[in-house]
Design a protein around this nucleic acid. Structure first.
Lengths: 266, 266
DNA sequence: TTGTTTTGTGTGGATTTGAACGTTCCCTTG
DNA sequence: CAAGGGAACGTTCAAATCCACACAAAACAA
C-alpha cells in the first residue's frame, strides 16, 4: 500500500480486513483518543506500524491524525457547520451581507437550509425585532444566539447531511406562516428550467414554501450558473430577487429580466 | 503514559494536544472561565503552552481571551441558559454518565429539554445505532455531531429561555413515537406530589410524553429535593428510574420505594 | 524456491514544548 | 491624575518529541 498507484479506495467502503484496524477503531470510539505509543504497547508492535495503520484509517476518513496520537474525526477547532461553510466562503458571505438589505426590522423571515442562508442568519445578528422560521438546525442555533429574534422551527426527521427537516411534517408546519420574505439557497440555475436542486426531498420542501411567501429571494454564488441541476424548485417568475456575486451568463440574465426577477450583484 | 484507570475526562498528564483542547473546552463549559495558571497546573504543562492553545481556540472562535485567563465567548449578554448549564455541572455530568448505563445500542430515546439531559446527550456520543427524539435545539445540535445516531426533532415556537419547543405541535409530533426510554429532567421533587416543574408549558409537554414511554427515567441533582415545585409533571408510579447524586430525604425515598421507582446513586 | 506483504529500524525533517527576555496592561499608591 | 510596581503577555530560541520516508528483515503464500 506504499505506492500510490493502487487506489486506497478499496478499504473505505467495507470494514477493514486487518483485525488490528477494527480493534483500534473500537478502542478509539471507546476512549475518544489515543497516543501512538499507547497503541503500540497495547498491540505489542512498533510505533511505526501503528502510524501506518493510522494512515490507512485516515485515508478512509475513519480517524483523524493529531500530533502525538490519533482521535475521532470532527475536530475541536471546527464545529460541523463551519466545515461546510468554507466552500466559497467569501462569496457566500458577501452575498449574505447584500441580502441583509432586503430585510427590515419587524419582518417575518423564512430561511431554508443551506450554507448561504446560514451566512445570512449570521449577518442578521444585529437586526432587532425579527421573526425567523426555518427547517435548519444550524440556522436555529444561530438565531438563538441573537437577542430580540423570535424563532419557529419546522421539525421532523433530520437529514444527517443537511442538518435540516424536509419531511411532510415540516411542510405542513410551514404552511401556516405567511412570511414577508422567504430566502432560499439553490443548487443550480438553468436559463430554461429556472432554479434547480440536487436532492428531491429538499426540493419538495422548498417548492412548498413558494405559495406562502409574499416575496422570494434566492441566494447563490456564481458556481451555480454552470452546474447541471436535477430537480426543479422554482421558475424565474416565482423569484423576486436573485442575489449573486458575479454577472450571470446572458441567457440567465435574459430569463430573469423577462420574468421580472431583480438581480443584485455584490 | 500512565495506566488509564482514571475516568476518561480527567486525562492523564501528557495527553496529545488535541485532547487538551477538547478537555479545555469541557472545563470551560463547566466553569465559565479559567485562569491560565490554573489550566497549566491542571494539564501539567507550562503556562506558555496553555496560551498557545488558547490562541488557537480563540482564532476558531470557541473561546475569548481575557487578561489573566480565558472565558466563553458571548460577552455581557449571558443567556440564562448557559448559567443553568454551569450550575451543578459536575453533579449533572456524573448523573448523565450513570444514566448512559440505562441505554443500549439500538434503542429509541426521547430526551426532553434540560441541562442534565443535555449532558446525557453528550455522554451518549460513542453509542452507535441510536434513535433520538427531542424538543431541544441544544440536544439536537449535540446529537447531530454523533455519527450513527438518527435524530427526530419536535418543532414549533422555540422558547428563548429553554431553547426548546413546548407547544401543541411539539406535543402532537411526539405522540407518534413509542420510545424505549424517555429521559426527563425535573425542577423539583416532592414526596407527596411527585415530580414537579416551574414552567407550565414545559410541564404540559413532559406530561404528554408519559403515556407513550415504555420506560421513564428522571435525572435530577440533589438540589431539587428541597425545592418547592409548582406544576405537577409525574407521580412516582409513572417513573421507573431516578438517577441522582445524593441520597434523597427519607420521605422521598419511601415514596419512591412504595411506587417501585428504582433510585440510582452516583 | 520465488515473490509479495508486513513489520522493524535508522535518519532527516517538522512540530511542539519550555525557558528566557522584552513589552504591554492593570492596578495601586502617592 | 500621574507614576510605578507587578503580573500577564507575546516572541525567540534551543531542546525534546514526533513524524514520514527509505531500506532491510521477517512472515507468508504460491
Amino acid at each position: 500500500m506504499e505506492s500510490m498507484d493502487m487506489p486506497a479506495r478499496t478499504l473505505s467502503a467495507r470494514a477493514p480486513q486487518n483485525a488490528r484496524l477494527t480493534t483500534l477503531l473500537d478502542l478509539l470510539e471507546q476512549r475518544g483518543q489515543c497516543s501512538i505509543g499507547e497503541l503500540a504497547e497495547r498491540f505489542d508492535v512498533s510505533e511505526e506500524t501503528i502510524r501506518r495503520d493510522v494512515r490507512q484509517l485516515e485515508q478512509a476518513g475513519r480517524v483523524q491524525k493529531i500530533h502525538g496520537g490519533v482521535c475521532l474525526p470532527g475536530g475541536v477547532l471546527e464545529p460541523p457547520y463551519r466545515q461546510r461553510l468554507r466552500d466559497q466562503a467569501e462569496a457566500k458571505q458577501r452575498i449574505a451581507e447584500r441580502a441583509v438589505a432586503l430585510v427590515r426590522p419587524g419582518m417575518t423571515l423564512m430561511l431554508d437550509s443551506g450554507t448561504t442562508t446560514l451566512w445570512l442568519a449570521r449577518a442578521l445578528g444585529h437586526v432587532r425585532d425579527l421573526t425567523v422560521i426555518t427547517n435548519s438546525m444550524e440556522i436555529a442555533a444561530q438565531v438563538l444566539g441573537h437577542p430580540g429574534q423570535r424563532l419557529f422551527v419546522a421539525g421532523g426527521a433530520i437529514d444527517p447531511d443537511y442538518h435540516a427537516a424536509f419531511g411532510s411534517e415540516a411542510i405542513d408546519y410551514c404552511r401556516q406562516f405567511a412570511p414577508d420574505l422567504t430566502v432560499l439557497s439553490m443548487g443550480a440555475v438553468d436559463p430554461v428550467r429556472g432554479f434547480l436542486d440536487f436532492d428531491a426531498g429538499e426540493a419538495a420542501f422548498k417548492r412548498s414554501l413558494l405559495p406562502q411567501a409574499r416575496r422570494v429571494a434566492v441566494l447563490c454564488d456564481a458556481t451555480k450558473f454552470d452546474k447541471p441541476g436535477f430537480v426543479q424548485v422554482a421558475r424565474f417568475a416565482d423569484v423576486h430577487d436573485l442575489v449573486t456575486d458575479q454577472t450571470p451568463p446572458a441567457e440567465i440574465a435574459a430569463a430573469a429580466a423577462a420574468a421580472g426577477t431583480a438581480i443584485h450583484l455584490v
